[in-house]
């Protein structure tokens, strides 16, 4: 904690959890998609579902999908900007169950180059967020450290290839998790790392034979 956490952040009101955190959720989902968003189905759960109009949670998420920061004064009119940009979005009320955080949303996105992803995340207070699901994987990360989300084939050597490249770059891994749907099928690894890495390193990882896609998630402001 430092003084800028107390005298700040500068943000669009009214709520750090229901507005600023919602902008960040939209941003994070867009980064996980990896390209500009063309179509979005946004499911709101719990307190988000009950109070989204009064807190502007809906316009905040759409602002985040366009990559805007939490202090962008265009946030209240994000819908008209999104429509002008050809972003097709709709909202629905969903129930993710009692175990889900009350401020949760599910963002099903299609990108301009036809990438697709479903991201579930929660706004956990003070503008902080936690991603709790990507597609079929129950994954947890905050995006406060540099994070790599890598889709790969569940085969020997995939993990070693990635960690070897990071080792060569002198990058330390703070946390790592691996998920798979079935043995030998598509899988996902999540790495939180202590150093920033260049896009060239990302390209190097992407060129490994077992690797399908790589998403570099830079900590959100």
């Amino acid at each position: 904690m430092n003084i800028l956490d107390i005298i700040g952040p500068i943000m669009i009101g009214p709520s750090s959890s229901h507005t600023a955190g919602a902008v960040r959720l939209g941003n994070m989902a867009r980064i996980i998609l990896g390209e500009a968003v063309q179509k979005a189905t946004i499911g709101l759960h719990g307190s988000f579902a009950k109070t989204y109009r009064g807190h502007g949670t809906d316009v905040a998420i759409v602002a985040g999908l366009m990559g805007w920061p939490t202090h962008d004064s265009r946030i209240p009119s994000s819908f008209s900007y999104a429509k002008a940009a050809g972003l097709d979005f709709r909202f629905e009320i969903i129930d993710l169950g009692d175990a889900a955080h009350p401020n949760s949303a599910q963002l099903q996105l299609t990108g301009v180059k036809n990438e697709q992803v479903s991201v579930v995340g929660a706004s956990i207070g003070g503008g902080r967020i936690m991603i709790t699901g990507v597609d079929d994987f129950s994954i947890e990360f905050h995006g406060e450290l540099m994070t790599l989300l890598i889709r790969h084939q569940d085969q020997p050597g995939a993990i070693a290839a990635v960690t070897n490249i990071l080792y060569q770059q002198g990058v330390n891994i703070a946390k790592m998790e691996v998920f798979r749907t079935d043995k030998g099928a598509s899988a996902l690894m999540m790495l939180e790392i202590d150093q920033m890495i260049d896009d060239e390193v990302v390209d190097q990882i992407r060129s490994c034979p077992q690797i399908n896609t790589v998403r570099k998630i830079v900590p959100l402001q």
């Binding site: 500068i10 009101g13 004064s73 209240p76």
Partner: peptide, 15 residues
């Protein structure tokens, strides 16, 4: 201003 989605400094919180 905060309740109208204006830009504010959360010091210490938005509320």
């Amino acid at each position: 201003a905060n309740a109208c989605m204006g830009r504010i400094v959360a010091a210490p919180t938005a509320g």
